[in-house]
């Protein structure tokens, strides 16, 4: 793929200059919004920063104190644990559903499959905060939409406390998240599915393989690369879930749905505005996601090779 021959107009000096000039807008924006803040976050995480320090513009150096504080905070450790559970659950469910639905919309002859295919992008376009609020209405114990469905269909006559029960609250938050992010996973799976040559299936049919065997021995192995891509991408994004938590549970009941991003947000942007500890906790999150990103980069690199 790499183009190794020398530039035909290599003698001109312009490509170098041009290459720089054309990248100026990108360089400036990325430095201001990504590069500088990333290093600045590291800097802040080693300093005492709250509103008073912000006003004075002087941040006393505190070494590793912020990190020591958050790691000795049981709530932070719990937030990480909740994030892991949330991510593990939502990504697993998402991958299973994505493959199933991708197979479903691949049925060109079924007209309802075409309707599904048309509607797949709808959740993708819904603002996460709106999604969260709508689900919090659906979950409401007293007058929510889901309990109304239970009553009306006669499935149950007692209300279910969907998001208010500490043992299920984390799952309750993850379902709207799955709802919103599933389209992406379905599309990737579907694209990969379409890339599988029919020849494989025909050969298998000749051998007398049933549908389930064909799926297990042909489709699934061929989908494996894309499953890994979905796994890495979705895991790293699910680690940073925020909007749905804000809209539905605000961390509750108790500490049942405190996740890492909620912890950072509360530390840094709620009184007493402990920005240093907030930055430190966000940095821990960044490190975890950074590791995932590196593995993703390697993966993609190998695919290109």
């Amino acid at each position: 793929m790499a183009r190794s021959e020398p530039f035909r107009f290599g003698r001109e000096r312009s490509p170098r200059v041009l290459g720089f000039v054309m990248n100026i807008p990108t360089l400036i924006t990325l430095s201001l919004v990504l590069a500088y803040p990333i290093f600045y976050a590291a800097y802040l995480s080693f300093h005492k920063v709250s509103l008073a320090e912000l006003r004075r513009g002087v941040y006393p150096f505190v070494g590793l104190a912020n990190y020591e504080r958050i790691f000795s905070d049981p709530l932070f450790r719990l937030s990480l644990k909740n994030t892991l559970i949330f991510t593990g659950f939502s990504v697993t469910v998402e991958i299973v559903l994505a493959i199933a639905i991708a197979l479903l919309i691949d049925q060109q002859h079924i007209w309802t499959s075409r309707v599904t295919k048309f509607l797949i992008l709808v959740p993708y376009a819904v603002p996460p905060i709106a999604n969260g609020l709508i689900w919090s209405f659906m979950y409401s114990f007293e007058y929510g939409f889901l309990n109304r469905i239970l009553y009306t269909t006669g499935i149950s006559h007692t209300a279910v406390n969907w998001s208010g029960d500490p043992s299920t609250a984390l799952i309750a938050v993850s379902i709207p998240y799955i709802w919103r992010t599933l389209p992406f996973a379905i599309l990737l799976s579907h694209a990969a599915l379409q890339g599988i040559s029919q020849d494989f299936y025909e050969a298998a049919s000749v051998d007398g393989a049933g549908a389930l065997q064909r799926f297990w021995h042909i489709t699934l192995p061929l989908l494996r690369p894309i499953i890994v891509v979905i796994l890495v991408l979705r895991t790293s994004f699910a680690f940073a879930v925020f909007d749905e938590v804000l809209a539905i549970t605000q961390g509750g009941p108790g500490d049942a749905t405190w996740v890492a991003s909620w912890y950072s947000y509360k530390k840094g942007f709620a009184p007493p505005f402990d920005i240093g500890a907030g930055a430190a906790s966000a940095y821990v999150l960044a490190m975890i996601i950074g590791l995932l990103a590196i593995s993703y980069g390697r993966l993609i690199y190998r695919r290109i090779q």
Partner: peptide, 24 residues
């Protein structure tokens, strides 16, 4: 190299940078 950084940068969630972004 810049391209490589971009592949990496797309992973950075807003939540991680909100504090330095706010201060900056």
């Amino acid at each position: 190299w810049l391209m490589g950084i971009n592949v990496f940068a797309r992973f950075v969630p807003v939540i991680v940078l909100m504090i330095p972004l706010y201060v900056t």
